[in-house]
Amino acid sequence: MDTVQIDFLNIDQQWDKKIKHCHFDIYHLSGWVAASAIVDKGTPMGLMATYKNKQLFLPIIIRKIDSAYWDATTTYGYGGPLMDKSLSDAEADYMLQAVKERLFAKGCVSLFMRLHPIINKDWIPTVGKALTHGLTLMSDLSQSEAAHWSETQNRHRRGIKKAIKHNVVTKIERLTKASALVFSTIYKET
């Protein structure tokens, strides 16, 4: 059987270019991974596994335990693996097993991997233990405002109306270590 080549990549704009051919989400992009690494107190790293000219990408956050050992996690949200559309489930599992073995050989004691509910919906890995935690809701953003409002639960409508009444506004902040930590603190409080 062919071998799996595994490369460790920096999470940066080059990473973003490499994954552009895959069906990806914001959770896979360098900005999100970098912000998550700050919150998780780790180092962002990308894995690229290649098997029979097919690729699997996995952004992870490495957290040191001591000088020899570390663990890894995918980002908060849905940062699961991105795979060539032509990969079969068996090939994806074979590649993931090779990733597991390579990580272990480098001192990784565990990998906590969140799967994306849309991108990874048809694949349940056989490597490790897979858990299901309930439904994930999604909304088609191309719908009209009226269509979105009609599918919004009553309790969420009340919250939105209350926020509008109290002049709550949102804004986009520049990502810095300080702003990521402030966000993390506020998020955990709620």
Rank of each mutant, 00 (worst) to 15 (best):
M1H: 12
M1V: 09
M1S: 15
M1R: 12
V4D: 05
Q5C: 05
D7Q: 13
D7R: 13
F8K: 14
Q13D: 13
D16H: 06
D16R: 02
K17Q: 13
I19V: 08
K20Q: 13
K20M: 11
H21T: 09
C22T: 10
H23Q: 14
D25R: 01
D25W: 02
I26F: 14
S30A: 13
W32P: 04
V33S: 02
A34Y: 04
A35G: 15
S36P: 04
A37M: 04
V39R: 14
D40K: 15
K41F: 09
T43Y: 13
T43H: 10
M45N: 06
G46A: 00
M48F: 04
T50Q: 04
T50H: 01
K52L: 12
K54W: 09
F57S: 03
L58Q: 05
I61C: 12
I61T: 13
R63E: 07
D66M: 04
D66P: 04
D71E: 14
A72S: 10
T73I: 06
T74N: 02
Y76I: 10
Y78D: 06
G79L: 00
G80W: 02
L82K: 05
L82N: 08
L82G: 05
M83H: 10
D89C: 11
A92I: 02
M95D: 03
L96R: 02
Q97Y: 12
A98N: 09
V99G: 02
K100C: 10
L103A: 02
A105P: 05
K106S: 12
F112E: 04
H116Q: 03
I118G: 06
N120W: 01
N120H: 01
K121Y: 06
D122T: 11
W123A: 05
P125E: 01
T126A: 13
V127G: 01
G128F: 01
G128Y: 01
G134R: 03
L137S: 09
L137P: 00
D140C: 10
D140R: 07
S144F: 07
S144M: 03
A147K: 13
A147G: 03
W149P: 06
W149D: 07
W149E: 07
S150G: 04
S150L: 11
E151Q: 15
T152S: 04
T152Y: 07
N154R: 11
N154E: 14
R158F: 11
I160F: 15
K161W: 05
I164A: 14
H166W: 07
N167D: 14
V169P: 00
K171H: 14
K171V: 03
R174Y: 12
A178M: 06
S179A: 05
A180F: 05
A180C: 15
